[in-house]
Computed example of a mutant assay.
Amino acid sequence: MHSDRIPLFCDTALAARVERDEVDLISAAAQAAHRRRGDGRGFLLPIARDVASFADDGSPYNKVAGLGFAGIPHADELDAIERAFADRNAPAQIELAHLADPEIAALLTTRGYRLESFENVLGRTLDGHAGAPAPPGIEVRRSGDDEFEAWLSVVADSVARPDVQGVPWHEEFPRETYELAERDAARAGVLRYAAFRDGTLAGGAGLRLTDGIAQFAGAATSPAHRRHGVQTALLTARLGDAAAAGCEIGVIVTQPGSKSQQNAQRRGFDLLYTRAVLVKNLPSCDAAATTS
């Protein structure tokens, strides 16, 4: 990394662009889940020109994405999505960028939404300087359909035993739910990368290229192979491919203070903005929280 590098500045226009691509990813993954289920249970509902998604029971794609850059949602829109989630026995979850219209956070608070956690959105310009090559013994390459099951097994095992550095994710998913979500992501255009350490499949990661932005999907490393440069090598390989594909900006989402954030910043990513995760629980959940 060059010492005179200028950090990437994020204004509301860039944040809106990144959030639009997030909406596109969530929508594509949810549509893949709907096709997989084929029972009409899922939904994609418009809200203030953004989207509320229910992909599958317990799916990480069950959320409202992109809100805050295309107007204030109307009360009837919020009523409709809250009913839709409640009808599927799911809480309404909204991920709201801190650069979004501040009136929305105030509105959601009056409707009973509670702050549950934060996640950081980091980005960097893609100038062809991906970083140092992988350490000796580590190889990263695109992972094809022929090894999907092996890739999924390693990634799912790794996610089940998360790295404890930093603030933990506010959500935990059963293994079966996580695996289904990864299958939906693959059908949504997320490319897979596999990392090998001394010939052993040690980790994996995803990458989605859209609208000039490279979305770096979650990377996971087996516990036995952590702290050996695997995650950094996965990031470096994807940076190079994203730049070669003509993307202008790379974006990655991490938990605050995590090893993933540290690795991303070492590779030139800057903190662009933070998303607040706001949740309106089902009435029975709220009652239980009050009496506990």
Rank of each mutant, 00 (worst) to 15 (best):
H2D: 15
S3T: 14
S3E: 14
S3D: 13
D4R: 14
D4I: 11
P7S: 10
L14S: 06
L14W: 07
E22F: 09
L25Y: 11
I47A: 00
I47H: 01
R49L: 04
V51A: 07
D56N: 10
S59I: 04
G66C: 09
G68H: 11
D79Q: 13
P91L: 03
E95P: 06
A97F: 12
A97R: 12
E103N: 15
A106V: 14
R111A: 10
S117A: 15
F118L: 15
R124Y: 04
A130V: 06
A134D: 07
P135C: 02
I138T: 07
E147G: 02
F148D: 11
V154P: 07
A156T: 12
D157Q: 08
Q165C: 07
V167I: 12
P168D: 09
F173A: 11
P174G: 03
R175M: 08
R175P: 01
Y178M: 14
R183M: 10
A188L: 02
L191I: 09
A194W: 09
R208L: 04
D211C: 05
Q215H: 13
S222L: 12
S222A: 13
S222G: 06
H228Q: 11
V230D: 01
A243E: 04
A245N: 00
G246R: 08
I252W: 01
I252R: 01
S258A: 08
S260K: 02
Q261T: 01
G268V: 05
D270L: 02
Y273P: 09
Y273F: 14
T274N: 08
V277I: 15
L278H: 08
K280A: 07
L282R: 09
P283D: 10
T290M: 10
T290K: 12
T291G: 13
